[in-house]
């Protein structure tokens, strides 16, 4: 078996900022298999209402301890946020393909991680893996306001170069994370690889930007899911040659592959 369904005790469910929480739990099996960009399918209710699991990216894996960082967006994540230390969490995973960062070495590319809002969650796990091999990891973080800028300190602690933007200018540059990315790109510097996660409008802007500079880019997408393992065809997106499943063929896609007009 490559995917596990486990019930684990919550070590911590901590409020990080308004509406954002971080759950910590231990699972040796999932920790051994987990790759950056993969997600867990989490049952938020002890009953059958709400019915479906919620797909939440893996934020960090250290030894056997797993963290998820999530934003409360509805009833499911609301119930999840109410769980306390010692409560049980029902988790399936690891699921999905994850980021492809192995090609960085062979192609001599420098990684730039671009996170919008809670989209920073899976990128932290990626950054942790990248700093093991690279000294030049750049992370661009954007949000509406200061209190929603997450993970800056711990990314700096890893040794990443971190740049921040907010829509209201309360910290970092006044603007979006795409403005930050623009500054990193130039026709001379195409030896980059972008890993992005965030709201669809942000990813669409990144798509337009990188198509000008022809920079290799991967994006992590989100869709409402039922099974989470590729069986039900509920979470498909349109790609160049048909449909792909976000849960099984993704959630990470090459930016060029996605039909952005359809999202």
């Amino acid at each position: 078996m490559k995917i596990f369904s486990v019930k684990k005790e919550i070590i911590e469910n901590k409020k990080i900022s308004a509406g954002c929480y971080r759950i910590t739990f231990e699972s040796r099996k999932i920790a051994c298999m987990a790759k950056p960009g993969q997600f867990l399918h989490i049952k938020c209710s002890d009953t059958y209402d709400p019915l479906l699991r919620r797909p939440i990216s893996i934020h960090s894996v250290e030894n056997n301890v797993i963290e998820i960082l999530y934003k409360v967006v509805g009833r499911g994540t609301g119930l999840l946020s109410e769980k306390s230390c010692g409560d049980s969490i029902d988790v399936m995973g690891p699921l999905g393909n994850g980021f492809d960062y192995q090609s960085l070495v062979t192609c001599h590319l420098s990684p730039i991680l671009v996170g919008g809002g809670i989209g920073i969650a899976p990128l932290y796990f990626l950054a942790r893996k990248l700093v093991e091999k690279y000294s030049n990891v750049t992370v661009l973080i954007g949000a509406d306001a200061k209190h929603n800028i997450l993970c800056v300190d711990k990314l700096k602690k890893l040794g990443c170069r971190v740049k921040v933007s907010t829509n209201d200018g309360s910290t970092g540059i006044n603007g979006t994370v795409v403005n930050l990315l623009k500054k990193e790109l130039s026709p001379e510097n195409v030896k980059l690889k972008i890993f992005a996660c965030g709201p669809i409008p942000m990813l669409k802007q990144i798509n337009r930007l990188v198509s000008v500079y022809n920079v290799s880019s991967q994006v992590s997408l989100e869709k409402r899911m039922a099974c989470g393992i590729g069986a039900c065809m509920g979470c498909i997106i349109k790609v160049k040659n048909g449909y792909k499943r976000v849960c099984k063929d993704g959630p990470v896609f090459d930016i060029k592959e996605v039909i952005w007009e359809d999202l």
């Binding site: 059958y48 709400p50 039922a226 039900c232 498909i236």
Partner: peptide, 10 residues
């Protein structure tokens, strides 16, 4: 898309 919607216990 969208192809799925969660409803009360269904």
């Amino acid at each position: 898309q969208p192809r799925i919607v969660e409803t009360a216990s269904g």
